[in-house]
């Protein structure tokens, strides 16, 4: 027997294993199982009329990477996700900083206000946009009524609409991730940098940003994954001609009944998300290390 306390209560009676069991079981049944089956399906053949034929081929993956249409969808998805993530970071950091540093007694209300957009579901938001920005919506009706424009402005069903829609959903996740980390950085550390001659820009670059990096990483990973896999927003605000990976997967399963190709697209989306996240992680970490003077 050692005198050190057990790391987990019950470890000596092998209770610890029992504690992780429910979550492990759930993930195995709800995630790993279906994904394994899906991956197996993605190697099957799709024969129109026969649905799915057992096989072990990579032609679904080849089809995706040789067809400009699908590659375009992937490129658009990555572009939208990157732009949304950067927009969330640029808008979210100042907001998160103020939220983290404020002494106001209304701080809790402010945090609730940040989360508030999440109370509005995607369908409700899209419906609201239709009434406001649709070709027969309030904005176009008034502009045309005043004779300022002849044709309605195209706001709905554009990439811009999708970008704004995804940012609106993802911004709270970014802000909350950043806020919790910035709150853990003592204000004194910023003041020390100021007293040592660092202006606000240098203080941010050399002290606040490196210390907030864990929050930046958590926030960008979260918003990037959400944006890569966005489904409702591209469908509702992008319209039928605006394709992103999420809706594409669903379309293959529900409309084309092409499960093997749907499965392949799913795994391409997942792999792209993981690879890009890891890449961003490495770049940020590398730059952070380069930031340190080497004396």
């Amino acid at each position: 027997m050692t005198s050190a306390p057990e790391a987990v209560a019950g470890a000596r009676k092998n209770l610890a294993g029992l504690l992780v069991l429910p979550a492990t079981l759930f993930v195995a049944v709800a995630l790993i199982g279906p994904l394994t089956i899906l991956f197996r399906y993605s190697l099957n053949k799709f024969v129109p009329g026969q649905f799915m034929v057992d096989a072990l081929v990579i032609e679904n993956y080849v089809k995706f990477f040789t067809d400009a249409y699908y590659l375009n969808v992937l490129a658009r998805t990555v572009r939208v996700a990157v732009i949304c993530t950067l927009a969330c970071l640029v808008m979210g950091f100042p907001l998160a900083y103020v939220l983290a540093r404020t002494q106001s007694r209304f701080k809790n209300l402010m945090v609730i206000a940040v989360v508030l957009p999440l109370f509005v579901g995607n369908a409700v938001r899209a419906a609201g946009w239709m009434t406001a920005f649709g070709s027969r919506g309030a904005l176009n009706a008034s502009l045309m009524g005043m004779g300022l424009i002849d044709q309605p402005l195209e706001i709905m069903f554009t990439e811009t609409a999708v970008l704004i829609g995804i940012v609106a959903v993802n911004l709270p996740f970014m802000v909350l991730s950043l806020q919790s980390v910035i709150e853990g950085i003592p204000r004194n550390v910023e003041e020390a940098a100021f007293s040592l001659g660092a202006g606000p820009g240098a203080m941010f670059r050399r002290v606040l940003w490196p210390l907030a990096l864990p929050g930046v990483l958590a926030g960008t990973i979260l918003t990037f994954i959400l944006a890569m896999n966005a489904y409702a927003t591209p469908v509702l605000l992008g319209g039928p001609k605006f394709q992103m990976m999420g809706p594409l997967v669903y379309g293959q399963f529900a409309q084309q009944n092409n499960w093997p190709f749907g499965g392949a697209i799913s795994f391409i989306l997942m792999t792209a998300t993981i690879l890009l996240t890891a890449l961003a992680h490495l770049i940020v970490q590398g730059r952070y290390r380069a930031n340190r003077p080497a004396e």
């Binding site: 004194n188 550390v189 100021f194 007293s195 210390l211």
Partner: peptide
């Protein structure tokens, strides 16, 4: 502003930069 005052400041809580070495 504080960064133009040339005041050396020492805080109760040290306020060292945790991501930098002593020399940095």
């Amino acid at each position: 502003p504080p960064w133009k005052r040339h005041c050396g400041l020492v805080f109760q809580s040290y306020a060292l930069f945790p991501h930098m070495s002593v020399a940095q």
